[in-house]
Amino acid sequence: MKKLLSILTISLVFSCHNQAQTNPKQQAAIDAEPVVVPLIDGKARAYFASGCFWCVEAVFESVKGVEESISGYAGGHTENPTYEASNTGRTGHAEAVEIIYDPEVVSFATLVDVYFGSQDPTQVNGQGPDHGSQYRSIIFYQNDEQKKIIEDKKATLAKELDATIAAEVYPFQKFWVGEDYHQNYERLHPDQGYIRNVSIPRLNKFKAKFPELLKDSGKH
């Protein structure tokens, strides 16, 4: 994601994407009953995929009511996915984040607004310079109420933009926590090239668009 890809590699990624999205195991994940994650110490969990998880983690951690954002993988059909395996496009997983939040402070509906408002909602299989099924946009629901919230907001946005919204809507099954070195990456590596040129501009664009949602410090 953070390096230039050759034409051959890009072709392979898209070929793998087609395979990942059409095999029976992936379809079973899409058709499964959602798993409900219970509150822990009054905190709820929500799950989103929207391009590079470094970017998404930073965005959500700037929002009032969000306690923590964890980078990992979700949406696929394989066990114990890794960064390297996910990047092949064959696992079905996308880079995703687990959002731990206080539902008394921020609602799931607002988190969906944050999700759509912090990306290009029409870009298929990626965000910005990151391309491939592992960077596709997915919103995960845990019950019918969440599913309706997502679908209603997606439909409204499609009408506003007069465009097809790329985000897929999946039943939540399992979140696989990513490798340690991916966690809090934007905060820990502010001078890294990708962070300076992609993550921070994306975060700042979100902050300018939704100042009312930011933590008092404006930091994460």
Rank of each mutant, 00 (worst) to 15 (best):
V35G: 01
I195K: 11
K64D: 01
H220M: 15
Y181I: 12
Q192N: 14
S217C: 05
I150A: 02
Y83H: 03
I150D: 04
M1C: 12
A49W: 02
T122H: 02
I149T: 10
S86H: 05
T122C: 05
V198W: 03
S107G: 13
K219N: 15
F175M: 08
A74Y: 05
N204F: 06
S133T: 12
L214H: 07
V66A: 13
E84P: 01
R196Y: 02
V13G: 00
A29F: 11
V97A: 06
K209L: 08
P81V: 02
R90G: 03
K64W: 04
E95L: 10
V56I: 10
R45Q: 12
T91V: 07
A163N: 03
Q119F: 05
L161T: 02
S62K: 08
K2R: 14
Y135R: 08
S217K: 07
W176A: 06
L188N: 15
G128N: 10
Y47D: 05
T91R: 05
V105R: 13
G193M: 02
P81N: 08
A85P: 01
Y185P: 14
E57H: 05
T78S: 03
R187E: 08
K25Q: 15
K64A: 12
A29M: 15
V37A: 14
Y141I: 04
V169C: 09
G218L: 00
Q19E: 05
S71H: 04
R45E: 11
A166Q: 00
F140A: 08
Q192G: 10
I7N: 13
H131T: 13
E67A: 09
A166K: 00
N204R: 08
Q26P: 02
G117D: 09
G193C: 00
R136F: 08
G75V: 03
E151C: 00
N204T: 06
P38V: 10
G132A: 11
L188M: 12
H182L: 14
G178R: 07
V112T: 04
V35Y: 00
E79M: 05
F175T: 07
F140H: 11
A109Y: 01
E68C: 02
G65F: 15
S69A: 15
L8F: 14
K215D: 13
